[in-house]
Nucleic acid binder design. Structure first.
Lengths: 162, 162
DNA sequence: GACAAAATAGAACGATCGTGCTATAAACTG
DNA sequence: CAGTTTATAGCACGATCGTTCTATTTTGTC
């Protein structure tokens, strides 16, 4: 699988950076094509529609989040160190070089919270996954004795998230 | 001053509601004109430019905020009751009928934090005013003995805001 | 290197964007 | 009611939007 996927990935990287500053609705095919030095139709051909492109941007953001926040933390010892790692990585995430405008999920959540559709559904799922990851990490920390045994892990995850 | 100001105000009310759901950049002259049953140019004539319209929308939001959050709280007794009033009114504010999409300041802050210009300047000023109002209320509560004497009122305001 | 397949360019579409202009209609002032 | 100011409509502009078509170039395979 050759060149197609490669430029597609490059487009999504650029689109993700753009999204973090101007939001999901703020990106445009033409503007993206100019920045990529591609023709508008050439770029468009990689995605059947703009909504599809936006969806892929969100998926890219989620992949980046997993690989730069969650995966490194899983290499840390179970329990409190891992939770601390999740927190540190999370803070660093918003300042990542490929996100010049900060966390794209926060930006997207703000523009999508009143707009039903597949984009919002994707975002809701992503947030739920993240909360479950946090709750799991908290549960492990309880098992390891690093956190109080009667802790409500769901509540902990939610406060961590806030 | 007659009809001009009246329709202008009506436009801004509609625009504010629209902004709270689609954001400041999401509103359009044409869409607004359709919703107001006015011609595009007839509506446009009230504002020299779109940026001017957006600025007036922010000013309208600030006026609404003052009159529905701050002013009523000032009629409550000094000290803790007033702080409690500010907090309650603030929560109610996001659910106000003229803000179907929630607090417009939060939405605007998210789209403007990377876009310098008069719009962002206005928003920064408004936030500073609000923090100062909170700090003043806290200072009064300290005087009244409702809050610890050694309280950092600035820090209190900031945490209240978060 | 020939050939099929995939990737990109180019042009055009209808729509909408923000913004001017000019004319008409409505609202005030005397 | 007459006259003037003010508010609104209508039309057109260049630009950009997302999208669809048809070429043309580039890539990967035998």
């Amino acid at each position: 699988m050759g060149k197609g996927r490669r430029t597609r990935r490059a487009i999504l990287d650029t689109a993700l950076a753009e999204t973090s500053t101007v939001g999901l609705a703020g990106i445009s095919i033409g503007g993206l094509a100019r920045k990529m030095e591609l023709s508008k139709s050439g770029l468009f051909a990689h995605f059947g529609s703009k909504e599809d492109l936006q969806l892929e941007v969100l998926a890219t953001a989620r992949d980046r989040f997993v690989e730069s926040v969650i995966v490194p933390a899983l290499r840390l010892p179970r329990g409190e160190p891992r939770i601390r790692g999740l927190f540190d990585n999370w803070l660093q995430w918003s300042r990542a070089s490929f996100l010049p405008g900060g966390c794209p999920f926060i930006a997207a959540a703000n523009e999508l919270d009143d707009v039903p559709g597949p984009l919002r559904d994707f975002l809701v799922d992503a947030q739920r996954d993240w909360l479950e990851t946090l709750a799991t990490a908290a549960r492990i920390a309880v098992e390891e004795g690093h956190l109080a045994r009667d802790l409500d892990v769901g509540q902990f995850a939610y406060e961590f998230y806030s």
